[in-house]
Design a protein around this nucleic acid. Structure first.
Lengths: 256, 256
DNA sequence: TAGTGGTCTAGACCACTGT
DNA sequence: CAGTGGTCTAGACCACTAT
């Protein structure tokens, strides 16, 4: 039995055991809050794992798990034998994460919409087939869109999906919704990761026209292959991005 | 000596308790090996945490820690109530990691060298000062290099360092050694992460000349600000990359 | 119901850091 | 030396999945 009776419950200093969020997450949220609000400033030493455990009446391992979370997010660094410290604030907090376009824009308070240029079945060319790991000629579903922020074009997307997924997507609101969002919330796909290959190219005429730049203007070309959690390829895209309008930011961690 | 003693020691099936590497790492290495060699194939279920614990005479938490490692590296995915499974192999295994240029090239069996164009003290212009978080006009150290692979140019790097670090670097072998490598192994810096902003630009004449491309050719422009583990800015760089010669690849994870 | 991963506890020993 | 984080144990209950 666990402490079924209430009166003897030790204080948790705000952490509640039965809550929807696990204890280690509650603690890491609490600490994150205190760091962001300046209660713990840059380079300050945080309470030790033992202290956190005592103070919140949790086990040391749980406190440790909370600190581990913050360390992975780059808010905290730990030195053996010395303690855990608040990292100096950096431009982009947190690891590089896979996000959809509208998702990333709305996180910055901007609204993104799409103009759908083409949407329908196609067959896998050899390069696409190779990336999606299907035989050449396999029926696929293709979507071509121009992404707009504040009514002005920022990128041209050419996406390929497995035929069934594509047909499902075609029925949804591709103008306002992220494909990633639709995949996860409508199609029941559990997205895992995506491999990117990034380069720079001169704009071809048709794409230049869609993006409102002169032919030959430099564009960011991102080849993105997304997988679900099992590693199954789900979505292969070419993104041509006007980098004068959008900056691609990411944070890489040095392996420990 | 392995098998230090002995009679009362429970079997560890190859895992040695006193070894330099911790048990959870030994186990995760062992599993990684079995996945790579195909003993556990794509989508196979791995032994449960309990089984691994029993089999190797370790605690369940330690087995769990090993699986967590593999999950973060994208080799394994876990489903509550079902088990842990081998992910399908993907192009780039592992999270996006911060690596130096030579480091990344040599991982692919290529040799990278640098031609140093300029190396010496300078003062922080406003944009550089802002990124490195020093007052404008602060003395810095500047290095301009062309990176070569197989004797042909692939990128032009313009780097700024704190003055003392830069002077230290200037005495070292910048032709063959990565700056990251020197920072870590000679200067005693513990690198943490780096923020990148990626765009595409048309090559200016002087850079075009150095890279052997026509003026106006599209180049990848990477603005990279590297920090040490404490979050202190260490190195601010502009990288102009011939993306016809090098592809920037990275893997982003969907947040859990 | 049985088995899985997710969370949590209350200890323990170690290596490393400061004094 | 005392305090810190790093590793490890032997349990426990929970939520979820399959049968």
């Amino acid at each position: 039995m666990t402490e079924t009776d209430q009166t003897t419950q030790p204080r948790r200093s705000g952490l509640t055991p039965g809550a929807p969020a696990p204890l280690y997450q509650q603690l890491s949220d609490l600490l994150r809050e205190r760091i962001k609000s300046g209660i713990y400033g840059p380079l300050d030493r945080l309470p030790s794992e033992h202290e956190l455990a005592r103070e919140h009446s949790i086990s040391r391992i749980t406190a440790r798990q909370a600190l581990g979370e913050l360390e992975r997010n780059g808010l905290v660094f730990r030195l053996q034998g010395r303690g855990s410290f608040v990292a100096r604030p950096t431009v982009v907090q947190g690891l590089a994460q896979l996000t959809g376009f509208a998702e990333a824009m709305s996180a910055q308070g901007l609204e993104a919409v799409s103009r759908v240029l083409r949407l329908g079945p196609t067959r896998a060319a050899t390069d696409v087939a190779e990336r999606l790991r299907v035989p050449p000629g396999t029926p696929l579903f293709e979507i071509r869109r121009v992404r707009l922020v504040n009514d002005s074009p920022v990128s041209f997307d050419h996406s390929y999906f497995p035929a069934d997924l594509g047909r499902r997507l075609a029925r949804e609101d591709l103008v306002r919704r992220d494909v990633f969002w639709l995949l996860e919330n409508v199609c029941g796909v559990r997205l895992g990761a995506a491999d990117h290959q990034i380069g720079a190219v001169a704009a071809e005429e048709d794409i230049a026209l869609q993006l409102g730049v002169p032919a030959g203007a430099p564009l960011l070309l991102i080849d993105r292959l997304s997988y679900d959690v099992t590693g199954m390829p789900i979505d292969y895209e070419h993104l041509y991005v006007r980098s004068d309008r959008v900056r691609y930011g990411l944070r890489l961690e040095r392996p420990r």
